[in-house]
Design a protein around this nucleic acid. Structure first.
Lengths: 195, 195
DNA sequence: CTTGACTCAGAACGATCGTTCTGGTTTGAA
DNA sequence: TTCAAACCAGAACGATCGTTCTGAGTCAAG
């Protein structure tokens, strides 16, 4: 029976996520991790085994703390085009609050930095992209007329996922949130004209 | 007076580029670099000073060998919407030839992995994105009617750059080139409807 | 052939990183 | 209070990496 400790695995993973997200995997040494989390090496290693295990635990934490709060509106039964605008706006505002250029998307960053050498991270990235695609499919099936073929819907959703990836990628090198918002508004205008 | 050597700095930078592009900066150790380029440590260090110097030399090489051949069509005086399609198709075909999921864009990868900790790389990334933006602006100014305001053109170009970044980002986690092509075709259809 | 500049292979060094270990401290329950 | 489990700080250990250095080989010029 575990006794009450000064930290829970969830809290540890949450603070580690913020550090990995901001600095990336390689630039986050165990020393940095110990300082940032306030948890000793002993605590980290007995809880997650190694650095890679702690890193993997950050993915569900990111889904819970970042993706779900912003993307739930896309997964609601009554989601529509306004939901897409809300999702993008929520994320851009969050990035602005932290400061642009921002940290972008933790999953997208990991896809570039560690996924090429790590199968487990590849799975996390694929699952994340699948979630995005499903969210856009949900919206499109709600706002699309019957004449629209399901095959075309999938392509539309895929294009939206690509644009989303590009948006967070660009948010890492852009200092003006207004530039991102204008591009998003224009993209949504184009999207609406196709439905 | 330098004597004839078994390699030129250009050749060295070219082979280093391919390795950095495929493996990323951190995963490319000097051992790997020596093996991949066939140049000894002595040759590398006397030519480029250090690993970072060799890495920086890869950016103009990437522009010369990859960006310019594919993007020149976008910078031609008579570039039009077909030029955009050609550009995307060229890059996707190149990625397919190497094998999807591919290495994506060297600049975009570097933007995620090393730019956050390296000012020089930030400059390279900004210059690359500016080149992309200028290329799209060139096309838009050619195909746009007079009633279109220049401000709107800039936003359109910015949206195109975002989509481009997303495309190469997605090409790193996608195994089907057809999926990318369909999304590109749809994006171009939407773009055309706005002009 | 001799010389000198240049090359390479590989050893060696210092720094850093992930990981393990030790000693001392804190916590919760009996 | 006492005990045992869990914790922390920090030292220590391999391993790896970027960099420098050494010695031998190679080519062009005289």
């Amino acid at each position: 029976m575990p006794r009450s400790t000064s930290f829970t695995p969830d809290q540890l993973a949450e603070r580690a996520l913020m550090t990995f997200w901001e600095l990336g995997y390689n630039a986050t040494s165990m020393d940095v991790l110990v300082r940032a989390t306030g948890v000793s090496r002993h605590g980290i290693y007995t809880t997650f085994g190694d650095k890679h295990g702690l890193f993997q635990a950050c993915f569900p934490k990111y889904q819970e703390l970042v993706v779900t709060p912003a993307f739930a509106v896309m997964e609601a039964p009554d989601a529509n085009l306004g939901s897409i605008a809300t999702y993008f706006d929520t994320q851009i505002s969050a990035a602005e609050k932290v400061g642009l250029p921002g940290p972008g998307c933790f999953v997208a960053n990991s896809a570039t930095e560690v996924a090429p050498h790590d199968t487990e991270t590849q799975v996390q990235v694929a699952a994340h992209n699948a979630r995005l695609h499903a969210g856009f499919m949900n919206v499109l099936s709600n706002v699309t007329r019957n004449r629209q073929r399901p095959r075309e819907r999938e392509v539309l959703a895929r294009m939206c996922v690509i644009f989303t990836n590009g948006l967070w990628s660009t948010s890492r090198v852009t200092s003006e949130g207004a530039d991102l918002r204008q591009a998003v508004d224009l993209f949504l205008t184009l999207l609406k004209s196709k439905l």
